[in-house]
Design a protein around this nucleic acid. Structure first.
Lengths: 211, 211
DNA sequence: CGGTTTCTTGAACGAGGTCAAGTTGTGTGG
DNA sequence: CCACACAACTTGACCTCGTTCAAGAAACCG
């Protein structure tokens, strides 16, 4: 998650240029599951999460999106997930119908959409890998590495999200997240600068934990 | 998984028409992780799995593909997963470079690829939902519902895959899979006709377990 | 500075993993 | 067609790890 899209071809500018810009405060809803899927979104700044609410009241986070990432892709006519702002954030929305019309005349745009979807696919597969990975410490290690790769900074991570968000993303409880982090700190693999800021001291060790 | 692609637009025929057909015996390797990602594949008959092998020797199954499904999509130049035949199966391979050339002149084909990728995305998200879902019985219930949706037959499922495959797909052990199935049988939600054939007696109950 | 939320830590419990044995199923050769 | 060998599946007993419940510490905000 938070993986920065690789440098986008010129065509991507179309997406950036044409849609209205919108601002959201933390925890604000961008769209709801079952809403008509009329727009794609591109994150300009801040972090967005897509969420699923289960019958028993539990919450699952499907993905986090950082600047440059595009979200809102749907196979059907309605969103299957809810999108919310994690931090204060800015997104560009792009109307799908308009996009379709444009794509008719612009194969390169269609191709660009295809590549963004591939990004999402890789992201979802990496997420499944983390979830299937037995062991709380390994999951957290993998999550930290994802964050590190997304931020660009190899060694310092600044979380936009709370512990509860991390827990719901990894399918565990806040308590276990906390314990796993202190365990990694005691092993001297990381430093907990503050609750939202972490220093990776031994990336190789984290990588081996994650497999 | 095993979700049958919704009826493909005419353009899909391009994919079907142009590539060489290949046959695989059970457990045969179709491509390996780190191989050059030169082809997409479409399943004609049988079932295929994509697999990830972890350092500790454990195996994760990323997805199952049944007839009509397309697999082999990659963001980069190499496959990140290994594809293997679950049962004896027939697939059509399609060279990616040729596809690129075609797509230049055929926006509809590019769009079709885009839709197939959306399929994969939805599949991966559903998988993540299952994996994050705490509770062995709930996971199995969700898996059975996926299989039922894929097969078309609402009530009878015939597995192509072994228990170990199910376990590696759901991130649990064979023993737990077995126990969860007998639990569902004792609750009279399913009938175990044989080890590879299951009858869903109470779909509503399964659905509520899965949430 | 007080109040609220977030984060961490502790203790007890329970679901799932592990190890081991038994059962069923399948394919092969006599 | 049966006997045998091997693989797949099921079941049981035990133990580990993560959840749950509860309390305390730290950060955030009015």
């Amino acid at each position: 998650m938070l993986r920065r899209s690789e440098q986008a071809p010129p065509q991507a500018a179309i997406l950036l240029a044409t849609g209205p810009v919108r601002y959201f405060a933390p925890n604000c809803c961008i769209y709801m599951a079952s809403d008509a899927a009329e727009a794609l979104f591109k994150v300009v700044s801040g972090v967005v999460r897509t969420v699923r609410f289960l019958q028993d009241g539990k919450r699952q986070i499907d993905a986090f999106y950082g600047s440059g990432d595009v979200f809102g892709f749907e196979r059907g006519a309605a969103y299957t997930l809810t999108a919310e702002a994690v931090s204060r954030c800015t997104v560009i929305s792009y109307n799908c119908k308009g996009l379709d019309v444009l794509a008719m005349h612009n194969p390169a745009l269609t191709r660009q959409l295809y590549v963004y979807t591939l990004d999402g696919l890789g992201r979802a597969q990496a997420h499944a890998k983390l979830l299937a990975h037995a062991g709380a410490t390994g999951k957290i290690a993998g999550f930290l590495l994802e964050c590190s790769a997304a931020s660009g900074d190899e060694h310092t991570i600044t979380f936009a999200m709370a512990r509860q968000d991390i827990a719901d993303y990894l399918g565990m409880t806040v308590e276990t997240v906390s314990r796993a982090l202190t365990e990694l700190r005691k092993a001297a693999f990381i430093d907990l600068i503050s609750s939202r800021e972490i220093n990776l001291k031994n990336v190789a060790a984290l990588r081996s934990l994650n497999s």
